[in-house]
Amino acid sequence: MPIVTMTLRIPGELAPSLKDAASREGMSLNAYVVRAARREATLDAARHLATLGLGDDLAGEGDTL
């Protein structure tokens, strides 16, 4: 997978809590932010799929969205 370098502007008051959270997780700040971005992208995709009503097709199968 290719790596792309991006510049991310973080509000000054948020930066220390991000650094602390990454440290608590034993992760680099970069890895922590990438993980958060992946989680949010996954949730966005799930929300989008839910708006398509695909969960209706699963009714009665024991699965829900």
Results as ranks from 00 to 15, higher is better:
residue 22 A to E: 03
residue 14 L to R: 13
residue 65 L to A: 03
residue 18 L to V: 15
residue 17 S to N: 14
residue 7 T to E: 12
residue 48 H to V: 10
residue 61 E to G: 12
residue 33 V to F: 00
residue 10 I to R: 01
residue 2 P to G: 07
residue 12 G to K: 10
residue 41 A to K: 07
residue 35 R to E: 03
residue 60 G to Q: 04
residue 20 D to R: 13
residue 31 A to P: 01
residue 49 L to D: 02
residue 64 T to N: 08
residue 40 E to R: 12
residue 12 G to E: 14
residue 55 G to I: 05
residue 50 A to L: 13
residue 17 S to M: 14
residue 6 M to T: 14
residue 42 T to G: 06
residue 57 D to H: 10
residue 14 L to I: 05
residue 56 D to P: 02
residue 26 G to I: 05
residue 30 N to F: 00
residue 15 A to H: 15
residue 53 G to Q: 04
residue 27 M to H: 07
residue 11 P to Y: 09
residue 1 M to G: 13
residue 23 S to Y: 01
residue 36 A to Q: 13
residue 22 A to H: 02
residue 64 T to H: 10
residue 29 L to K: 01
residue 15 A to V: 03
residue 45 A to N: 09
residue 23 S to H: 05
residue 3 I to M: 09
residue 63 D to A: 13
residue 47 R to W: 09
residue 39 R to H: 06
residue 33 V to R: 02
residue 36 A to G: 12
residue 19 K to E: 15
residue 61 E to A: 07
residue 53 G to A: 04
residue 17 S to Q: 15
residue 33 V to P: 03
residue 5 T to W: 05
residue 65 L to F: 12
residue 44 D to Y: 07
residue 47 R to H: 13
residue 2 P to Y: 05
residue 59 A to K: 13
residue 26 G to Q: 09
residue 49 L to S: 02
residue 1 M to T: 05
residue 43 L to Y: 11
residue 4 V to S: 10
residue 29 L to V: 06
residue 62 G to L: 00
residue 2 P to N: 09
